[in-house]
Design a binder for these strands. Structure first.
Lengths: 113, 113
DNA sequence: GCTTTATATAACTCAACCGTGATAGATAAA
DNA sequence: TTTATCTATCACGGTTGAGTTATATAAAGC
């Protein structure tokens, strides 16, 4: 499943938002999502599975609980895809700032032109 | 249709990639997409409709042709959503660089804490 | 006017995915 | 060991959306 397909679902986006604040157990996530979206525990669990299998989260067991956390790689992939469009709204910013934030470090390119 | 649902389709992502290089007519896009994905002209046209209606592109007529171009707002919305996760991979960068590139200019926040 | 070219829309089919209830597995508590 | 708790998986149904073919619209050329 492609990264963008995973993020296409509002429940999964919300779960990632929750995890952005820090590690959370399946149960904590389920409580919040049930309240906000009104779906069942298996429903939430299946979304967690998608997030796991697509590399958006990690899990570690602690007793009977499973603690989920954001795994940045997949999200970063999305960020990288957006790079090709950044010039459409980043035009006003000086090149240095953009370079720093994008982490490209492509100063070698300067030798081309 | 939510921005992420729009980007969930590989054909639509590819169309946006093509438009990142500059304005293109429906016909030019269709030729490329047909070659790469093997779908019909109406198929491509419907994807163009989705991109139009969701604000990812603009269109301007020129004779019988319709010239499509990237419209940054919707893509930027995605970029903004990613902001909350950037700290997971931007940690090594100094705050100034990040601030510049994200264009936040939220120095007012300093007064809160 | 008619014909051709460029593009969009309509109606339909099919597959994928999201939700459900029922159930399984595994740890903790009694 | 029995029971309770936490989480995941299974099998199924309904809905949605992407694809198709056929057709409509609209400008350009003859």
């Amino acid at each position: 499943m492609h990264a963008f397909d995973v993020l296409g679902d509002p429940v999964r986006r919300r779960i990632l938002e929750l995890l952005a604040a820090g590690e959370q157990s399946s149960g904590e996530i389920t409580t919040t999502i049930r309240a906000e979206f009104g779906i069942s525990q298996p429903g939430v669990s299946q979304h967690l599975r998608v997030l796991r299998e697509s590399g958006f989260t990690t899990v570690r067991p602690e007793g009977t609980r499973r603690l989920y956390a954001v795994r940045s790689e997949a999200l970063r992939e999305v960020d990288v895809w957006l790079d090709q469009f950044r010039r459409f709204w980043d035009q006003r910013l000086d090149a240095l700032g953009t370079e720093l934030a994008r982490g490209r470090r492509r100063h070698a390119k300067e030798t081309e032109s």
